[in-house]
Amino acid sequence: MRRHTLAVIVENRPGVLTRVTTLFRRRGYNIESLAVGETENPSISRITIVVMGDEKIMEQVTKQLYKLVDVIKIVDITDKRSVERELVMIKVKADVNVRAEIVQIVDIFRARIVDIGKTSLIIEVTGDSGKIDAIVESLKPFGIIELVRTGIVAMVRGEIK
């Protein structure tokens, strides 16, 4: 069992996301992360799904997805050279005493502070899951009030000359 990242290219039509998620639910496959959006071609959307599975499960996932009429193409990019990113916003407790410390952490992770409240900050960070887990761990001691993640998006790298 390991994490697989699938890029599922689908028709940009109402209900397509439901078809995909219904299939995962019905067949008992577990979605770890899902992100969807239009592509460079407005008639096509791209769903990035992260799913746990062994080879057998992944074969079934792919074959079952291909049976959906609205699914045009599926690429398992897990073992391809690819860039994976996720955006996370974290609202963290921050009174004056600890602000400096938090700003330091934000700098180290090349994150950004996007809102400053009286007793809290909102931090935006983009990265792969390793980086995101790490910053979340570092901020935990201050007290995380709220956290939201976009889900992972991924892209295969271009050829090197």
């Binding site: 109402p14 439901t18 078809r19 219904t22 019905r26 009429v69």
Partner: peptide
């Protein structure tokens, strides 16, 4: 009905 029949059809349309 499209929502209801999604898992029990090969495909459906509105």
């Amino acid at each position: 009905i499209t929502g209801i029949t999604m898992p029990i059809t090969k495909h459906n349309y509105v």
